[in-house]
Nucleic acid binder design. Structure first.
Lengths: 210, 210
DNA sequence: AGGATTTGCCTAAAGGCTTTAGGTGATTTC
DNA sequence: GAAATCACCTAAAGCCTTTAGGCAAATCCT
């Protein structure tokens, strides 16, 4: 019997393709085995279990997105950088909906800490340096950007914005305009807010999650 | 044999509880049957299939959230209303993570059109009336708010913001401040943007999705 | 080269979830 | 109270996951 030449890497890659075709939650060890024309049990030599497979697909997707993000940010700053980064996520999700869904897969903390997920946070922080926020405002802004990017992309992908005018491209442009304006004139904390709430962040670890 | 008194309504309710306990994607016809101490096949008299069950849980959750939203908006306007509505989603997600996940379940278009989902869009639009945007800007803003609410809540729920200072409550407050400021000074379209892209919205149907 | 080891894929089997078909007794209806 | 309906059950088939154990191909050693 000729061997199929499987390994965890190839399985993850094929799993990612499968996810884009049938949806991440339809990615199954069985389906993947069929795709390689191999018996199901064979995959279990390369992948611990179904969750392990999904995790690898998630990590792969996070890395791909991080690579794209790094490319997009290179040589750009300010609003240009904001738009470029935002489009990385939106375009990735539209080109690879299954992978994008995979990237949302809840990893256990240790795996997450070693994933490309931390790069994403770092790059968002780098982008924000162009807006000259100081801590803890930069952290707030990282979270805001993450929320808008993820929220917009997943709602758009889920079809929540379809069948209604105006087109989503226009909204996207306007949303990014607004974000840029917001960041340029980042509001002071509302009067009455506790100025010392949260930890002192001036010596914060730049590698920490968003 | 005594009867358990099942019906679709009770199953959906119990399914929602189960979702909050074990996660929406662990909600299974089997698990639900165990919970009622009844054989699995019995549930199929009340619910068409697994997807039908999930759909009912999703609809239930959307309704519960819509009810809370309506209560929260009553008698409020402007920033107060914005904060109240935003907190409805965040609080609901924290109290009922499984239901919140259920509310994200992709419904088929017809079901979605008859769900409480349209109320959510309508309420957001109502809230925005306080900011005096005109179409198509109001639609852009509906989408922006949806994105931020959903994005923030799901990232926070997914743990993306944990293990890092400052606390998420503070970020949330600052994000809402920013949104309010943004809406009050909604920027004009960027120069060069096509002023006529998208349909003419001045006569748009107020019931349309976001 | 040729034997030993490792590696890659297979068969077999058990357990779980989904879904359909058909049965039986409890409940409702007239 | 008999008929019809309803609520739950048993049985069974299909698909997915996961583990155990086997055989042959590839690789490693002398």
């Amino acid at each position: 019997m000729a061997r199929a030449g499987l390994n965890a890497e190839r399985l993850a890659r094929a799993g990612a393709e499968l996810a884009d075709e049938v949806g991440f939650d339809q990615v199954t060890v069985s389906a993947l085995a069929k795709r390689f024309d191999v018996k199901v049990a064979s995959l279990y030599s390369h992948v611990r279990n179904s969750r392990d497979l999904r995790t690898r697909i998630a990590l792969l997707s996070l890395e791909e997105m991080a690579d794209r993000a790094a490319d997009a940010l290179a040589g750009r700053s300010g609003k240009d950088a904001l738009i470029a980064l935002a489009n990385v996520y939106r375009d990735y999700a539209r080109e690879h909906p299954g992978r994008y869904a995979a990237a949302q897969f809840r990893l256990d903390p240790e795996t997450a800490a070693n994933s490309a997920g931390v790069q994403h946070a770092r790059m968002t922080r780098a982008l924000l340096r162009g807006y000259q926020l100081s801590e803890p405002d930069e952290t707030h802004a990282v979270r805001l950007l993450g929320s808008v990017f993820h929220g917009y992309v997943s709602l758009e992908l889920g079809g929540s914005f379809s069948h209604s005018a105006p087109g989503t491209d226009e909204t996207w442009t306007r949303v990014l305009d607004s974000l840029d304006a917001m960041l340029r004139s980042w509001p002071a904390p509302a009067p009455g807010a506790d100025p010392d709430s949260g930890a002192d962040d001036r010596t914060a670890d730049p590698d920490r999650p968003n």
